[in-house]
């Protein structure tokens, strides 16, 4: 029996799928190597353990996102194929001649209109608590919180009244640096350590 045939028969024997004819063919070799029986038992035990602990199927993290991302990749790929440059026929050439200047003019007009509106609001007075501003609450009863929205500034300011004064011993810059550093560390370790 050559080596390849022996390996094939032994593999099938360990899997328990030998035919009767193959069993007869392998019998003399098994008789000459009684230690193979223990090896077979060990391998069968190992196979059972592998099946028990290694899952055949394990959904990827964020499975819904997996499908959505895949769809995007495929649609991008399709787009890349579909949107090949096509030869400009008469109509397309004519449209492209005046569409680009028209689009540029529209952008300039929109910009000028925006500037005019911005100037009109400049004299709008000081920031006030706006009805559209988000509601802010404080979990500490002695601290009052309010949101002020200033359209001319283009932002929202949250004012907290009733907080204790920050002691002089606190170095705000150092605290900010430490916070940033620890945040970076958290990200770099995936938040597993801390």
């Amino acid at each position: 029996m050559n080596q390849n045939r022996k390996e094939e028969l032994l593999t099938r024997w360990m899997d328990g799928v030998l035919t009767d004819a193959e069993q007869v063919e392998l019998a003399p070799y098994l008789a000459a190597h009684p230690e193979l029986e223990a090896e077979r038992e060990g391998i069968q035990r190992m196979r059972g353990e592998i099946r028990r602990v290694i899952p055949a199927s394990e959904d990827p993290p964020y499975p819904d996102f997996f499908n959505a991302h895949l769809e995007r990749l495929i649609s991008e790929d399709r787009g890349a194929v579909v949107e090949e440059p096509r030869p400009a026929n008469g109509l397309w050439r004519m449209l492209s001649l005046w569409l680009a200047p028209a689009a540029a003019a529209a952008v300039v007009l929109a910009f000028l209109a925006g500037m005019q509106l911005g100037h009109a609001r400049d004299g709008g007075g000081p920031a006030v608590a706006d009805a559209m501003a988000p509601a802010v609450y404080s979990p500490i009863a002695t601290v009052q919180a309010a949101a002020l929205q200033d359209e001319s500034f283009g932002g929202t300011v949250i004012v907290l009244e009733g907080l204790d004064a920050i002691p002089n011993s606190v170095d705000l810059f150092q605290t900010a640096e430490q916070s940033a550093a620890s945040e970076l560390y958290m990200i770099s370790t995936g938040g597993e350590t801390f």
């Binding site: 099946r51 028990r52 055949a56 394990e58 959904d59 993290p61 964020y62 819904d64």
Partner: peptide, 17 residues
Amino acid sequence: MNLFRQITSKRVMGPVF
């Protein structure tokens, strides 16, 4: 999509034969 639901929806299945 609720992140918690996404995470908990990760399924682990045994071998398939």
